[in-house]
Design a protein around this nucleic acid. Structure first.
Lengths: 343, 343
DNA sequence: GTGAAAGCGCTAACAC
DNA sequence: GTGTTAGCGCTTTCAC
């Protein structure tokens, strides 16, 4: 019954048509200088025999795999899922596949990811650096081998590679400004690890927005956490314990904001009346919360698309490492929902 | 400056040590019958030259790619993200990589996914069938080629392949029973497309739970939607428009439940007091809603792990298509949160 | 316009 | 315990 079909190769097609494998290969690849008629006959036979090209063989021969390796901290964070979606879209349009490696925010896994991709002979690596990572040598290895590296979101300028990021500073500035416009004056910030540049930028945006609006900076109102629900909750508790608690919070991202919301509710305070809050990232859950969470949208799909496009364009120009690194900065967009809208 | 290193191959190591490539290959693969000393020298040199094995070449030679192809409807649904996580875990332990293909619930993409995987020479395909798919011929093609196929969650018995599913019937039964235990008597069900077996099973579980508890079935209280937030909202509106609206709703999954919640709130009714509600799938957002959403947990990570394990076990026994298909049924677990807990 | 032949990097039979 | 040789399936120079 279920006979397992032996694989059909280019040679089988050649035999069936009494021509050579070389001609079949050329015909299938629409090589100019192959008679139209031959092309047709080859393609017809390929279809009839149910031929599927062996990409592995082709990759070996051509020295390129048509695979993009993507390194992300976690697929559970919808932000990254969304970026990957954008990457996949552009990749598929260019006949590329995408391999994903999750680092779980761990440096060791990140190193292993690069290694895996090296062995898999990916044609490029698109990566978002893990929060834990400080040493960047493993990425240098890609450079030594001439494999394009493009960073997105969690970028790093020292590597001298192209990147697509969102203007975190501007996003933070707008978010803070928005809280000010709602009448808040004691605006707290729950920040993240300051060696991660995006988190540092958001802090700066917050500070400058206060300055511009002549609101004195208050050290008590800035706390640093580890960027997670739990950490957000703990940081908020600290803020609530102040003799004079804040009337608004700008959280470094949405999960942190979520934790903060839980702490605020637990303390019996009302959002946004007692304390207004805004996050960053536009995670999927934000719009479903009660009150719904104000946040900053980062154009995730576009970020992925642009990162992938950078690779394909660099490829056309002969190698990303040879051309000047480009930095693309996407404009963030404020999303005002209930959690920050005072009447 | 940035010299691009030419690739180091097995031959380079051989040359450096004045031995043959064959020996190097064997040494690197820990072949028994290679002197320990040789192995050491080879590995040392490999490290020194910064050698990275070329998996593509190895794959071509061995006729296996060490890649598992995974077909899912969407990575945005955290349910699938979570299953993939489980698959990746087991895959990595077995030195395998995972390629993901998203179908966006579209039949055409599903076909294209299988095709892509065929060309990429994946060693196995793990898939969850899209809602739109009825024709299953593209999966037969995998069979013809002897490529193991294992289904998860959205399975189909006609294909005669192994699968890992959750006991949807039992989950639905428990969910409904729980609503009954809370004192609800007019329990509605917002169902999904009935040709998708998991949705059909959930309907059955709902019906039987009512029967067992002597609650008469009421056709008005069963509406069918397309399993999305919007559809959930619309279906709920229908139910609210009844002369006698329900006092509880069992939604076919969490996004549907979310839409229903929005409609209930909009109508000015209180959850769970006026209408209790429970979903299915334990999506990430459920615990953050207000009120938090009761639901049924499906052991997603385990589902992925088990599906992957099935492949590796079948591999040891010489081909999944030759052995009897196995069906693994995971037990769902009720998660009671606020949306269904009457005082 | 098509054929012949070599080779991408690796591994496995078969030698000895 | 290691070398020799051939070949996985494809593409591409060099012929003619």
């Amino acid at each position: 019954m279920s006979d397992i079909i032996s694989k059909v190769t280019i040679a089988d097609i050649a035999r069936a048509l009494k021509i050579t494998p070389a001609t079949v290969s050329r015909a299938l690849n629409n090589h100019p200088g192959i008679k139209e008629e031959t092309k047709l006959r080859v393609k017809e036979t390929a279809l009839r025999l149910n031929y599927q090209p062996n990409k592995i063989a082709s990759s070996l021969r051509l020295g390129k795999s048509n695979i993009i390796g993507v390194i992300i901290p976690s697929a559970e964070i919808s932000f990254f899922g969304s970026v990957v979606h954008g990457i996949e879209k552009v990749a598929n349009e260019n006949n590329y596949n995408v391999l994903i490696y999750q680092t779980n925010e761990l440096f060791e896994y990140e190193k292993k990811g690069v290694q895996t991709f090296l062995q898999s002979q990916v044609d490029a690596v698109l990566a978002s650096i893990s929060k834990e990572t400080i040493n960047l040598d493993h990425y240098q290895e890609l450079k030594r081998r001439g494999i394009p590296l493009i960073l997105f979101d969690r970028a790093n300028d020292q590597l001298g590679v192209s990147s697509v990021v969102v203007d975190d500073y501007a996003g933070a500035f707008e978010a803070t400004k928005h809280l000010i416009s709602q009448g808040c004056r004691r605006i707290a910030h729950i920040g993240g690890q300051q060696h991660v540049s995006i988190f540092n930028q958001r802090l700066k945006g917050y500070i400058d927005a206060l300055n511009v609006h002549n609101i004195p900076l208050n050290d008590d109102l800035i706390v640093y956490g580890k960027v997670s629900i739990d950490s957000g909750r703990e940081c908020m508790k600290q803020l609530l314990a102040l003799r004079q608690p804040p009337d608004a919070v700008f959280a470094v991202e949405d999960f942190t904001a979520l934790g903060a919301i839980q702490a605020i509710k637990q303390a019996g305070k009302v959002i946004p009346d007692d304390i207004a809050i805004i996050g960053f990232a536009n995670e999927a859950f934000g719009e479903f919360l009660t009150p719904s969470l104000s946040t900053v949208n980062q154009q995730t799909v576009k970020m992925g698309e642009e990162a992938a496009k950078m690779f394909f364009e660099g490829q056309r120009k002969g190698g990303t490492w040879l051309t000047q690194p480009k930095k693309m900065v996407l404009e963030p967009a404020l999303i005002c929902r209930e959690s920050s809208s005072k009447r």
